[in-house]
Design a protein around this nucleic acid. Structure first.
Length: 893
RNA sequence: GCCGUCUUAGCUCAGUGGUAGAGCACUCGCUUCACACGCGAUAGGUCGUAAGUUCGAAUCUUAUAGACGGCACCA
């Protein structure tokens, strides 16, 4: 069989995925072993509004590597895919579409039609990301695809809500919440980010104190909120204001009279020491208001314009316009003391960047006391175990310890409508269905709560709702088989939003842990070192990378990033692995060009006494690599495994083994070719989780692949590398002696090549090489004479106890041998002197360091004896080499 | 304000107590019968700075500078 000269990723990508999927290779049911252990991962469901970005590609790669390896190890594996309904994001898309296409607003068409349109939008656009996942090669079980608003998952949401309500863990209440005036919904604390504004202002307003000629000055960054002030607070021990406590002020612009109160919250050192209190627009003021029984005056509408309570002069004005107007009016009244420049941090909406307004609002909350303890008890037992452990284990635990209640209602139409109904008197009835609630309400007229639940409420159930738990049904085969899931792979940004809530809710409703381990991936940054974003225009599209370098190259590059580390994107990294793919393609191509009569045969790797040194060495390297690759993956250190595979394939297999065996193979040795394709077959399996397309493509082309190569759990399946067993590596097959001997050969060849390069001798000129070594290495070199001559491009190898060469020779030393190449007429003595002198300098530096260390009695006394012996041996070796080089140098004169 | 992470070759990154590594770029040489997405050979770093612990520190401790992140506060 003759392969194309270069690997074409696209043709491999196009031919294999569909076959894998239609043959059912991704489903756990493919496993025929009734006693197989299970291994499961649920995907962090991407938003239906999303398209694939590098973060997904990274996480999906990690998950696929884990799943593919476990599948090859005979586990009954499930990687469950799905999507998230993404409340606000979809709502916004549909609103935009409605405006653009129909010039209508949601109110125009009403809730029912709006929701219908949202579903239509989801059907039309919501599958973009799943198609992209197929391209990625993700071995997810599409038959178990879930959407957070599927029927069963929605029933789960209602049941969880009702149970938590019945148990008093969910409550409705009037609180200061984060309000986004653009999205017109409340946000949880986690959805509010902050933005530092350097040109902020601190405005000092004077309020006249009634019954005196004094004023009290308060400072504020939001002057418009003074329209809702219901008190001025000072610290009770502040001498400046002691006599004012209990008096009242005439609140300008409102005609209202408000008290001056004393509260420990006020810091006398800050600002003027007097604070305006607006209980309806500030969380701290709200607290003070509660303590002093103050009126709460809401002065804004839901779009952050001022409402009637702000007074006719301000009603209808945007908050920022009102702010200017308040300042203007205070100036006119002579009550503006000053405006200072002040750096402030503003709360902004995570999605739309609008400045969030803290306002008093009636919302639904989850009480976090018991919920937190569920997660905290696990966290203290190290569940989930984060990778990397630092800093996540600590940060996660600390966050749980300081948890506040979770605002779960959202003023949206797209999502899970809250299963609560109100009668005309405002009494609340919570129930799983309207019928159930009607019964409770005794036939009163009811209206369902118009709000929906935070998207994270339903994603919090993802670890078990996806396996069929919905509250009505609480026992399913999948639930028993796959929960707890083995590992969750996700980004830092949703550890609190999602990871913590899955831990809590899964424990609460199933009694099980959601997952044992949690791999936290780093951030893939743009080429400018900043997070990728549309506004920065520094994004890199994974699909473009797939087209340019191939899916496999992109995957293994992503897997080569240290777990949890951020990385600046660079195409060169992917290109490196594109080249790697091509290298493997061509190595296979070479084997297949000479495969007449040969085929994969695992018996060919069992030593019967006929192995040459390169054979013993490559088998040793193969097994050691397998052991180390597995160890790396067990520790979730994907990058070390990638590096091991890269160097095994490129250095050991291609640069040395193929070159050493080339003569035998091209001469048509069936034995040699059988052995090399067998080694290749095993190595491809190790690589398969990282580079599924390339390895499948090549594996299927290898001669002699048969069902006997499939893992026992899949023995009735069709041929595919993805159902063979993942190599474990055999410590008994690791041959230290062979590695030492092979290293001596490699070093010898390298030194001879070095002489040729540095003496600038054309490869057309074949020279003789004299080698002096001890008898054991003499044997090694003799046994591999043909290979040494070929790779060093020499024509004769003279091996002896000592070197006996003319003065016009270039010389070198290795750990195990002295080398001389007679170069009569070709040698430049100055160059040779420099060469030798440089080598002497280098070795002497090392020797001096060791001598220093070994003459330090503290070191000799305290360091492990083994270490000291090692250094002594090395020192003697160096001394010998330096001596030889010096003799060689002197001989030149 | 509190907590944390990072700083290693020109670039992008590995490396957690025992002689500094990779890929790319650079230099030199190869149309060598798998691969120029290649082959061979070099060169390149006092591991941000300073002090400390240790026989020994890129690695542990402390301080400090810079970059970044999280949390809190924000009258």
């Amino acid at each position: 069989m003759e392969l194309a000269k270069a690997y074409d990723p696209k043709s491999a990508e196009e031919s294999h995925y569909q076959r894998w999927e239609t043959k059912g290779f991704f489903t756990p049911e493919i496993n025929e072993d009734p006693d197989a252990k299970t291994y499961s991962i649920v995907i962090p469901p991407p938003n239906v509004t999303g398209s694939l970005h590098m973060g997904h590609a990274l996480q999906h790669t990690i998950m696929d590597v884990l799943i593919r390896r476990k599948r090859m190890q005979g586990y009954r594996t499930l990687w469950l895919p799905g999507t998230d309904h993404a409340g606000i994001s979809v709502q916004r898309k549909v609103v935009e579409q409605l405006k653009k296409v129909d010039h209508k607003s949601p109110i125009d068409i009403g809730r029912e039609e709006f929701v219908q349109r949202a579903w239509a939008w989801k059907e039309q656009y919501g599958n973009a990301i799943t198609e992209q996942m197929r391209r990625e090669g993700a071995s997810v079980d599409w038959l178990r695809h879930r959407f957070t608003m599927d029927d069963s998952l929605s029933i789960a949401v209602r049941n969880v809500f009702c149970t938590l309500y019945d148990e008093g863990w969910i409550y409705r209440g009037l609180r200061i919440v984060n309000w986004c005036p653009k999205d017109k919904t409340v946000l949880s604390d986690l959805e509010v980010k902050e933005e530092t504004k350097k040109d902020g202002k601190l405005t000092y307003l004077k309020y006249p104190v009634i019954g005196t000629d004094r004023t009290v000055t308060v400072a504020t960054t939001r002057p418009e909120t003074m329209l809702g002030d219901t008190a001025v607070a000072v610290n009770p021990s502040d001498d400046r204001y002691k006599d004012l406590i209990g008096r009242t002020v005439a609140l300008p612009l409102t005609g209202r009279v408000i008290p001056i109160i004393a509260d420990e919250y006020v810091d006398a050192e800050f600002g003027t020491g007097a604070v305006k209190i607006t209980p309806a627009h500030d969380p701290n003021d709200y607290q003070i208001g509660q303590r002093h029984d103050l009126e709460q005056i809401l002065v804004m509408n839901e779009d952050a314009t001022m409402n009637a309570a702000a007074g006719p002069e301000f009603e209808g004005l945007d908050r920022f316009v009102a702010r200017e107007k308040v300042v203007e009016r205070f100036t006119e009244l002579g009550l503006l003391e000053k405006i200072d420049d002040y750096e402030i941090t503003l709360p902004i909406c995570e999605r739309c960047k609008t400045i969030v307004e803290p306002i008093l609002s009636d919302q639904w909350f989850v009480k976090m006391d018991e919920m937190r303890d569920l997660a905290l008890d696990l966290a203290r037992k190290g569940v989930p175990a984060f990778s990397p452990e630092v800093p996540h284990q600590k940060v996660y635990t600390a966050w749980l310890e300081n948890l506040k209640d979770w605002t779960i209602s959202r003023q949206l139409w797209w999502g899970h409508q809250i299963p609560a109904w109100y009668d005309e008197d405002g009494n609340v009835f919570v129930g799983r269905t309207e019928a159930e609630v009607r019964e409770k309400a005794g036939g009163k007229e009811l209206r369902q709560d118009q709000d929906v639940l935070d998207t994270w409420f339903s994603s919090g159930l993802w670890a078990f709702s996806t396996f069929g738990w919905n509250g009505d049904t609480t026992d399913t085969p999948d639930l028993n088989a796959f929960l707890p899931t083995d590992v969750l792979v996700t980004g830092r940004d949703i550890i609190f939003l999602w990871v913590s809530r899955m831990m809590m809710l899964t424990k609460k409703f199933t009694g099980k842990t959601a997952f044992d381990d949690c791999i936290v991936t780093g951030t893939v940054l743009g080429k400018d070192g900043k997070p990728m974003s549309k506004s920065r225009n520094n994004g890199v599209d994974p699909i473009e990378m797939f087209d340019k370098f191939g899916v496999d190259a992109t995957r293994i590059y992503l897997a080569s990033i240290a777990t949890g580390a951020d990385i600046k994107w660079n195409d060169v990294g992917v290109e490196t692995y594109r080249n790697f793919a091509n290298k493997i393609w061509n190595a296979t191509r070479f084997c297949l060009m000479n495969a007449e009569g040969a085929g994969v045969d695992h018996a060919s790797l069992i030593e019967h006494g006929g192995f040459s040194l390169p054979d013993k060495w490559i088998i040793s390297r193969l097994n050691q690599t397998a052991i180390d690759v597995n160890a790396g993956l067990e520790k979730y250190e994907f990058h070390t495994s990638v590096s091991l595979l890269y160097h095994f394939f490129w250095d050991d297999f291609c640069d040395w083994y193929i070159e050493l065996k080339k003569d035998e193979i091209t001469a048509g040795s069936v034995e040699a070719t059988t052995r090399i394709v067998t080694i290749l077959e095993i190595a491809l399996r190790m690589l398969h989780p990282f580079m599924p397309y390339l390895t499948e493509d090549l594996w299927l082309k290898l001669p002699g692949v048969s069902s006997s190569l499939l893992h026992a759990a899949y023995k009735n399946s069709e041929q595919t590398i993805m159902l063979t067993s993942f190599p474990v590596g055999d410590l008994a097959a690791v041959d230290k002696a062979a590695e030492t001997e092979m290293n001596a050969v490699i070093e010898l060849i390298t030194k001879i090549r070095n002489i040729r390069a540095e003496m600038n001798i054309s490869t057309a000129i074949k020279f003789s090489v004299h080698v002096a070594a001890n008898s054991s290495f003499q044997g090694v070199f003799r046994a591999n004479e043909a290979q040494i001559l070929k790779l060093a491009k020499a024509e004769k190898l003279i091996i002896a106890d000592t070197l006996d060469v003319p003065r016009a020779s270039a010389k070198a030393v290795t750990n195990d041998a002295s080398i001389a190449v007679p170069l009569e007429g070709l040698i430049d003595f100055d160059v040779e002197r420099t060469r030798l002198a440089n080598q002497i300098v280098k070795l002497t530096e090392e020797k001096d360091r060791l001598t220093g260390q070994l003459s330090n009695t503290n070191f000799v006394d305290r360091a492990p004896a083994e270490k000291v012996a090692e250094l002594r041996e090395r020192s003697a070796e160096l001394e010998h080499q330096i001596e030889t080089l010096n003799v060689n140098l002197e001989a030149l004169d």
